[in-house]
């Protein structure tokens, strides 16, 4: 770990001011500290926001929910409103990491966690994200957990969050504060695809701090989070699906589907949902939606299996979302 300057922010404006001068923001630290020990990240200054008052979960005027950036994953998953109105989010959170990590990890930090691509973590290996221009060892290496959608020739890293996948299905928005003021963006627009600059992962500008995440009112329909992984707990998704589906007279009337483990960002494709609307719930609709989802999917050897697995996971999720319960 490189020696660094540490300061504690006395408020969001202070954090933003320090971030604008180049400081890296420390919240729960579950990812950043590991990366600093490995010197994958070596900030000269760290500004600690963990004591700021951003831990509230409060209703919004339009019936949605505002989640403070420092609400821990554990508190968010166990919140009564989240559990009853947004169960997909609670499920997604509880499927991630471990109790110990969830007790520390924060809402804002979760959105900004870095990929688990093993080559990103090995400073002795080529990685365009860590060291732009050095190449991508994952492309022909061990890429089992990496992306089949949205990648580029420069990077196929996946975004590892479960929480963010559920939030995308819920059409979350992200509130930002910077020395220039505040703004709100769609979570859909927070992360960017790697293209030829995989080191750029979000649209955040220097000095911009996430202060909260806003959920619109819970949409109608049933919610589910299905995560497929290599062991029963404490493993990142091979494929995950966050789904919210409403049915009337046996036909799908509303659908929101987001996918984890497949892409460099929580993945959502409006055409996948369009393929479902108006269709009778059943395997045929699921197959059609999977066709749309995976039309441009590209494997790199070790992760080829994700393409058929995504199809099966989508089928499984839609069955959970649409089958009558006794």
């Amino acid at each position: 770990m490189r020696p660094f300057d540490y300061s504690r922010a006395d408020g969001a404006p202070d954090a933003a001011a320090k971030a604008a001068q180049g400081a890296t923001i420390l919240a729960g630290g579950t990812n950043l500290l590991d990366l600093m020990k490995l010197e994958v990240m070596a900030p000269e200054a760290v500004v600690d926001i963990s004591r700021l008052d951003l831990t509230g979960i409060t209703p919004t005027e339009d019936g949605g929910l505002r989640i403070g950036a420092l609400v821990t994953n554990t508190d968010l998953a166990n919140d009564r409103t989240v559990r009853t109105q947004y169960p997909v989010l609670s499920r997604a959170l509880l499927s991630g990491a471990t109790v110990q990590l969830r007790n520390k990890a924060t809402t804002g930090g979760n959105l900004l966690q870095r990929t688990r691509c093993p080559y990103f973590y090995d400073t002795g290996a080529a990685c365009n994200k860590r060291d732009p221009g050095s190449g991508c060892a994952a492309m022909t290496g061990c890429n089992r957990i990496l992306a089949v959608l949205g990648g580029s020739d420069h990077c196929i890293a996946t975004h590892p969050s479960d929480m963010a996948v559920a939030m995308r299905a819920l059409r979350a928005r992200v509130a930002l504060e910077s020395p220039e003021g505040t703004r709100e963006i769609a979570l859909a627009d927070l992360h960017v695809l790697p293209g030829d600059t995989p080191e750029v992962e979000t649209v955040l500008q220097p000095g911009e701090v996430i202060t909260s995440v806003i959920l619109p009112p819970a949409p109608p329909g049933r919610q589910a989070y299905v995560k497929i992984r290599d062991r029963a707990s404490y493993a990142f998704a091979l494929v995950s699906v966050a789904g919210i589906v409403a049915i009337e007279d046996g036909r799908i009337t509303e659908a929101a589907l987001a996918f984890g483990g497949l892409a460099p960002k929580p993945w959502r494709d409006p055409e996948v949902e369009a393929a479902l609307i108006g269709q009778p719930a059943g395997p045929a609709a699921a197959e059609a939606a999977a066709d749309v989802l995976l039309a441009d999917a590209k494997g790199h050897g070790g992760n080829d299996f994700k393409i058929p697995l995504a199809r099966r996971t989508l089928k499984r999720a839609l069955r959970e979302l649409t089958e009558a319960t006794s």
């Binding site: 093993p118 080559y119 061990c142 290599d230 062991r231 029963a232 707990s233 493993a235």
Partner: peptide, 30 residues
């Protein structure tokens, strides 16, 4: 049977998953 595997990079032999997050020992739920 189900989870453990050291992955070696096919080109240089390095152990790719050299930590307990990525080398999958069975956890309690397994």
């Amino acid at each position: 049977a189900l989870t453990e595997e050291i992955m070696h990079d096919p080109s240089d032999g390095r152990i790719v998953n050299h930590n307990l997050a990525e080398y999958h020992l069975p956890v309690s739920l397994d």
